[in-house]
């Protein structure tokens, strides 16, 4: 059984972002990391690998050449191999184009589960898992707090307002998981050394059977404006007091603002 985890390289959450003239993120100016929400997908896949449920974990990313660093980082956490789809024609790809490319690459890699994080930390569209499933005409198991695989079936445990649901579909599937999966492991220094020796393939658009024309018709969004988020008012912290005292203080705070 094989899982391919789709990961995205994003600017570090804390990095100061700058934009190019055409309102795209200036990637060179910000430290790049694995999308933190994708790390939960990696963790989930590696737990299934550790448990012997799956035999192979690979990674797939679409992005500029430097996204290879994110794949190496993922390989340092575990797993066997990685594939980067990179092509000059992919610059500025939106969710739709991304889904088209990932779906085409996944067709070639043919995993039992294509696993993703629930959203990317930069764009937060949350569209790609669904779009990839639709493109590949496969079931989508989204927002899992846990992924389980048995008897030719994939199941996810999804939190609901009343508890949780187990949702099942026959393999192969596309699935996404949330931070409920559990804390992602650290890459060890030995893992970093080992990752250097693991295969990382680079595919062009043509390698996945697509052309620039396919994507231009697929780029459905356009960025019209970019602004930094508004500064949040300072957070008031209540610390180092007993639970009763803290509760009273919070109640007073809410009452003063007529919120209770």
């Amino acid at each position: 059984m094989k899982i391919v985890v789709c990961i995205k390289q994003v600017p570090a959450t804390t990095a100061e972002k700058r934009y190019t003239d055409d309102l795209r993120l200036d990637r060179a100016s910000a430290e790049a990391i694995i999308n933190p929400l994708d790390e939960y997908a990696i963790e989930q896949a590696l737990r299934l690998l550790d448990a012997g449920t799956v035999d192979e974990v690979g990674y797939l990313s679409m992005g500029p050449e430097q996204a290879g660093e994110a794949l190496r980082r993922a390989l340092a956490m575990g797993g066997e191999s990685a594939t980067l789809v990179t092509d000059p024609a992919l610059a500025g790809a939106d969710e739709w184009a991304t889904a088209a490319v990932l779906a085409a690459a996944l067709d070639k890699l043919a995993p039992d589960v294509a696993l993703m994080g629930m959203a990317s930390d930069d764009a937060r569209g949350s569209l790609v898992p669904g779009a990839v499933a639709a493109r590949r005409n496969l079931p989508l198991l989204s927002y899992g707090a846990e992924l389980a695989l048995a008897d030719g079936q994939a199941r996810i445990r999804r939190l609901s307002p009343t508890g949780f649901d187990w949702i099942a579909a026959p393999l192969p599937v596309v699935a996404s998981v949330t931070d409920q999966v559990g804390e992602p492991r650290y890459a060890s220094l030995k893992g970093i050394m080992a990752a250097k020796r693991k295969p990382l393939d680079t595919w062009s658009l043509a390698d996945v059977g697509l052309s620039a024309e396919d994507l231009r018709s697929g780029a459905l969004t356009r960025v019209t404006d970019a602004r930094p988020p508004e500064a949040k008012p300072p957070t008031e912290r209540i610390e180092n007091v007993s639970a009763d005292e803290a509760a009273a203080k919070i109640a007073d705070w809410l009452a003063a603002r007529k919120l209770v």
Partner: peptide
């Protein structure tokens, strides 16, 4: 080197 940067990130993350 990218590898040394990676080592820094890893140890910093743990720390």
């Amino acid at each position: 080197s990218p590898q040394h940067e990676e080592i820094r990130r890893t140890v910093r993350d743990f720390a």
